[in-house]
Every structure is written in C-alpha cells, then in structure tokens.
Simulated assay, not measured.
Amino acid sequence: MISNAAETLYENPLASAEDLTTFRLEGEGAVSFPLGRLRLESVRPPEDGQDANVVLWCPEDFPPDIAVEWDFWPIREPGLCILFFHAKGRAGEDLFDLRPRTGPYEQYHHGDLDTYHVSYFRRRWPAERAFHTCNLRKSYGFHLVAQGPDPLPSVLDAEGPYKLRLTVDRGHISFAINDVTSFEWYDDQPLAGGKLGFRQMAPLIGEYANLRVSQL
C-alpha cells in the first residue's frame, strides 16, 4: 500500500493477512498474526540446513536514497535475521523476474541478483551468541563491508518492540536499533535501489510490524 504522505513512499502495519497479499515468500515458511503483527517462521526443521531458511519480500521497488523503519520482536532462538535491500537483477531486472529462489543463502549472495543485506539478532552459532554483532554485506559476492554491536537482548530478556532503522543516503549506509547506531559505511559505487525482504534462519521465530520506507 503506497502512502499519500509526501515524505513517505510506503507504509504497512504488517498486522493481518490482508497486509501481505502481494508479498512473496521464498522457502517453506509460515506467516501468522497471533498478536496483530507479522510472525514469520520456517516449517522445516533446522537439521535441513539452508533449505529450512525463508525470505519474505515486499513487492515494491524503492529508489536509492531511503530510510527503512520497522518494529521487531525476537520470539524464539537460535537463528538470525537479515534485511535485504536494494535487491534487483544483476542487469537491472525486476527481482521477481529472475529464476525462482527457495531460501538457501547462496542463491542470494551468489545468484543472479545484486543486493545489500544487514544481519542482526545473530544467535545461530556459539560465537555469535557470545559476542553480538550486526553485519553489512554487499552482493553479488559475500563481501563483509561493515560491522557493529548488536544491543538486542536474548529472547529470555527481550520485551520489544525494538525500533530498527536503516538509512541509505548517496552511498552512506547506517543502521540503528532504538536510536543506537550500530554501524555506518560509505559505498563509492552504491546500488541503484530495488526491493527489500526479511530473511530468517531456522529455527528462529521473529515478529515484525509498522514497516515504513521514506524518501531521503
């Protein structure tokens, strides 16, 4: 749903199935709204590895200079969350016109698309659980370009909602949680906009609400 507000390109409360009618889910996942906000989870066991992971794409294409804001609640760990942004084909194609993807990570960083992706609430491996960071990568490829602290608590102590904000302004990319900046990075060859999507690594369950994309 496109907002009429001049400074806002897109708003979606993510509060019901009607809010996701044009979203696209890749991988074997389930969406529900038990608390009036989007709950995303895999329906496959984590033993299935990358085949158990899911991506939920917003259908809109966005320009290069934007702010993306959303609310997040961690419900079950281990796992991790990723936001893909500025995703489109390597020759500029619409993301949905490319070969079908089914969730394995390699399809997204060494497939036929270019994208940035920020990973947060990284709780999959022991090292990640011991020292929490947010990572920014640029693809094609698996290029780690920035890293910063992740202030999100574990599920046991989490209350939420946690306010997440990503900004891209003429190649300057920053990411903040509850107004605490995790990292900033400048790309002298920035990607030219595209789609955004939420990715989860099983068996994590996360909840999302109040997605907003604004023009910078």
Rank of each mutant, 00 (worst) to 15 (best):
L35H: 13
L196N: 00
R170I: 07
V55M: 04
L164R: 03
S154Y: 09
E60M: 14
R99V: 11
G148L: 07
G197S: 07
K163V: 06
V180R: 15
Y120V: 03
V213W: 06
P100Y: 10
A5V: 11
A67W: 08
V155I: 04
P190I: 01
R44N: 06
Y186L: 08
Y186A: 07
F121W: 15
D157Y: 15
G79R: 00
E184Q: 12
A87S: 12
L56S: 02
R129L: 10
D71L: 15
G160W: 10
F142M: 05
I82P: 00
D65P: 02
G103R: 00
A209Q: 07
P203V: 01
F96D: 01
V43P: 01
V168N: 09
D94Q: 09
L216S: 06
P203A: 07
S139F: 06
M201R: 05
I177W: 09
D94L: 11
R37Y: 09
E93S: 06
S214R: 15
E7V: 04
V54T: 08
W125C: 07
L9F: 05
E41R: 10
S214H: 07
R90W: 02
H172F: 10
H143Y: 07
N135C: 09
E128M: 10
S174H: 07
Y108Q: 01
A192E: 14
R90T: 13
G160M: 10
R212F: 05
Y108D: 01
F85P: 00
N4I: 12
F142E: 05
P13L: 14
N4A: 15
C58I: 14
E7C: 10
P13Y: 11
G36F: 13
D19R: 12
R129Y: 08
T115F: 03
N12Y: 10
V31I: 14
D179N: 15
P153I: 05
L14N: 03
D187L: 05
L40Y: 06
Q200A: 08
D48L: 13
G27K: 01
D188I: 09
L56R: 00
P126A: 05
V55Y: 00
K195Y: 01
R90M: 13
P126C: 06
F62K: 03
E106S: 14
S214M: 14
G141Q: 02
Q107V: 12
H143M: 09
Q50I: 01
A5C: 10
G92A: 08
Y162V: 09
Y116F: 09
T22M: 08
C81I: 06
F62I: 03
P45A: 15
G171V: 13
I75C: 03
G49C: 06
V145T: 08
R123K: 07
R76K: 13
H143R: 13
L196V: 03
A87L: 03
S182D: 05
C81A: 14
R129Q: 15
L95E: 00
N53K: 03
D112R: 07
D48W: 09
H110Q: 14
E60Y: 03
V213K: 04
A158H: 07
T8M: 11
L113Q: 03
H132N: 08
D169G: 04
N210H: 14
F183C: 10
D94T: 04
Y208D: 02
V168D: 04
N4W: 12
L166D: 01
